[in-house]
Computed example of a mutant assay.
Amino acid sequence: MKRFSTIFLAVLMLAANLPSAFAMDENAGLSLSCASSILMEKETGTVLYDQDSHAKLEPASVTKIMTLLLVMEAVDSGRLSMDDVVTVSAYAAGMGGSQVYLKEGEQMTVSEMIKCVTVVSGNDCAVALAEHLAGSETAFVAKMNQRAKELGMQDTNFVNCTGLPARGHVTSAYDIALMSRELTLNHPSIRQYTTIWMDSIRGGTFGLTNTNRLVRFYPGTTGLKTGSTDSALYCMSATAERDGMELIAVIMKAPTTAQRFDDAKTLLDYGFANYALVNVYPDAPLSPVDVLLGVVPQVQPQLQRDCRLLVNKADANQVSTRLSMAQNLEAPVEQGQTLGQLDVYVGDELRDSIPIISAQQVDRLTVPDIFARMLHQLLMSK
């Protein structure tokens, strides 16, 4: 058993050093108009296409992905409720750019304000939410930058929560993909807002139409956020899902709004055409493992986690598994104890190793238990 554990740990260390993303197709030959872009698969975080993705550029209103992330984290942690009422300050009401023309003292629920931020990029609502959560936009921006560091966003410095032009307010396509992934992966309820095409507020008197045209015109679109200023030009983080795989396409500094959407569609089309997420299972159901000196003779093994493998579609039929299990397993066995592993290969390349664990605890027989069992077997043999 000790020898098996040593081998297993060695294989785990090898697997931990495997690249989290396989090599990208450097010759994809995509024709894009933007200055910087990236395509990322959401579940694994694998980068599928990269065009100068660490260039530090102005993000315009794509900034609000971080604003929405902090708001959704507060909602999902219980610190904030969708039904909470936000009272608008004079400062929030005075925001320029995209807005829903909030008035000082006007009240609106958190849910309605999130809708305004996601659908029409309301700067006034973004600031009102920031003030409600942190007391001031300045304090909220400090939280934005702290969260950016936690996510590994090394190219980013936020100066405001809206993306309005400000000296030193920069990020990168890669960092935008990171915060987009965090928002969509861990706060999926944001999709009920980011997929709205048309809606209204104030009892139907003020109409909203999504700035993200892909919501209406690109099948599978799930969001996420557009942005544009004279200096940032046209930016967006576009998310879409097909066949159980969601992609994040980030476009920075496209020359026109039409080219921004065309670039995003080009990236998404490329991803969906060439990659797939494959569910991986053992070739056969896992058989019970014999346990020496256990109060029960066998223990049922199970996979520690599911395996979903991102593969190039051309390699989908090359996925295979190899199973290794402990021999001469002796009680006691703890629930969750490692019993083996399932290695997943694409061709000859090891792509994942999944621990196989005990589904239950098995206690060791005591000396009286052993004598009682022997006596029972003796009586049954007569």
Rank of each mutant, 00 (worst) to 15 (best):
V100G: 00
L68G: 03
E330N: 15
T221V: 13
S98A: 15
E131A: 01
F158L: 04
L342G: 03
T366H: 12
L12A: 12
F22H: 09
L309A: 10
M1W: 12
L214Y: 00
D199Q: 10
L30S: 09
S358L: 06
I370D: 04
A23S: 14
M13Y: 07
V299L: 11
F261A: 05
A21I: 03
P188Y: 09
T118N: 11
L378R: 12
Q154H: 14
E43D: 15
S358F: 04
M66T: 07
N279C: 09
L32F: 08
C34R: 05
Y234A: 05
L151H: 08
Y174S: 06
F140G: 01
A92C: 09
T156Y: 00
S381P: 02
D50L: 03
G336N: 06
V299D: 07
A258V: 12
G122Q: 08
S31R: 14
H132K: 11
Q154D: 15
I190V: 15
L214G: 01
F22Q: 14
A90Y: 05
V110Y: 00
L323M: 14
L70S: 02
Y91S: 13
G78Y: 10
I190P: 00
D290H: 12
L303A: 11
T205K: 14
L339H: 01
A55Q: 13
S89L: 02
Y345S: 05
G29H: 08
P188A: 14
A326Y: 07
Y345I: 07
Q298W: 06
A314I: 12
I354K: 03
V85E: 09
N274A: 06
V110T: 05
M236Y: 07
L178A: 02
M236G: 15
G220N: 06
N328L: 12
A55F: 08
Q377Y: 10
G227R: 03
S31K: 15
A273K: 15
Q341T: 10
K253D: 13
A93D: 08
G135K: 04
A93R: 04
D343I: 02
S231K: 14
S31G: 08
V86P: 00
G347Q: 11
V215Q: 02
M108K: 02
M24Q: 15
Q361S: 12
E26V: 13
L102A: 02
T44N: 09
Q318K: 13
V159G: 03
M153F: 06
Y101C: 11
M252K: 04
E106T: 03
G220M: 05
S381M: 14
P19M: 07
M24K: 15
R181V: 04
L247P: 01
M380A: 14
P297N: 12
M374T: 09
E104K: 11
C125F: 05
E73C: 09
L224F: 05
R202T: 06
A15T: 13
I354M: 06
R3H: 14
Q51E: 11
A284C: 07
G244F: 07
E330D: 15
T221K: 05
A134K: 06
V344L: 08
S231N: 12
L339V: 03
M72L: 15
D262N: 12
A92F: 03
M113T: 01
V117P: 00
G122P: 04
G336H: 02
G204R: 11
A93G: 15
T87F: 00
V299T: 10
L133T: 01
Y275N: 02
T67D: 07
G204M: 07
F272A: 02
S228H: 14
E43C: 04
V11S: 11
L151T: 05
F140K: 05
V289W: 00
